[in-house]
């Protein structure tokens, strides 16, 4: 294969890849572009809706939507629930990840415990939702942020367990042993040696868990009423005046922007995280 043919092939592949990438990127782009247009231009815009070329962009929809307290409440609730559940999942899940990486359990063996944690992500939430509704009402934590945090923590905990377990496995055990020779306790070796060395993986796991807690709609729609989060706020964009595409676009963007940024930050760990540690990536 001579060099010219090689670069021609590279160009062809690049063009095909670029075309597909653009198709996949289009929905996000369209929504973004829609949020910058005046309502009249929602459907009259030509081309693919590039600001300044196809239309004059305006922040009118954004300022209008963000001026309502609902937007702030939804943003605050979503962030609060996601941050606290992520923190809780780490506090409870991290020691478990360490235990599964470092010690041998006989009954049941380590790998079965790991798989059992993972099996929660396979469980259809529909099967657990009615009991949650009944129990939460009985306990008086229905429609509270506290109740929501408990649910979210439960379902995101597998991520920290499987992602960080793998990182702990990759750490040389000698470091912790050296610390223990120097007089550190077991817990000290875990907190002062293993955890600091695994910060990147813990951070990536946190981003993934935050996103899952932030994105959840199923449990929110069952267990929340007045304490609404972003998805419920988006649904409010459809009212008696019909679907207001321009406001929906803004609300969609508000919900989606943060996960998209986190996605780019956690890029290296997405494969390991979403395959639940099975593929190292």
């Amino acid at each position: 294969m001579n060099r010219n043919q090689g670069s021609l092939l590279t160009s062809i592949y690049t063009i095909i890849a670029l075309g597909i990438t653009m198709i996949f990127f289009f929905p996000l782009w369209w929504s973004f572009s829609n949020s910058l247009r005046i309502p009249k231009e929602t459907f009259t815009v030509t081309g693919v809706g590039i600001p300044f070329i196809n239309f004059t962009p305006t922040l009118g929809n954004w300022t209008h939507q963000l001026s309502f307290p609902e937007a702030h409440i939804a943003l605050y609730n979503s962030s609060f629930i996601a941050v606290v559940s992520t923190a809780l999942a780490i506090i409870v899940g991290l020691p478990a990840a360490y235990a599964l990486a470092r010690f041998r359990f006989r009954f049941p063996p380590n790998k079965d415990i790991t798989i059992w944690f993972i099996s929660q992500r396979v469980l259809p939430p529909a099967a657990a939702v009615v009991p949650f509704f009944v129990l939460w009402n009985m306990l008086g934590i229905y429609d509270t942020k506290f109740g929501m945090i408990i649910v979210q923590t439960t379902f995101i905990m597998p991520f920290v367990v499987v992602i960080v377990r793998q990182t702990f496995l990759d750490l040389p055990i000698e470091l912790e042993e050296a610390a223990m020779v120097d007089g550190a306790t077991h817990i000290g070796a875990f907190l002062k040696v293993a955890v600091p060395l695994s910060v990147p993986a813990i951070a990536a796991a946190s981003l993934i868990m935050f996103t899952f807690a932030w994105n959840d709609y199923f449990f929110v729609s069952v267990l929340m009423m007045k304490n609404f989060t972003l998805p419920i706020y988006i649904a409010g964009g459809v009212d008696s005046r019909g679907v207001q595409f321009w406001f929906i676009a803004v609300r969609t963007m508000i919900a989606v922007i943060l996960p998209l940024i986190l996605c780019l930050l956690a890029q290296r760990y997405i494969v390991r995280g979403l395959t639940l540690g099975a593929v190292k990536g």
Partner: peptide
């Protein structure tokens, strides 16, 4: 990077996004 953006997007919001599309 552009390709993997959809993975983390809020599914409920994605439904509405496709509703407009």
């Amino acid at each position: 990077s552009l390709m993997i953006l959809p993975i983390f997007a809020t599914p409920f919001a994605i439904g509405f996004m496709f509703f407009t599309i």
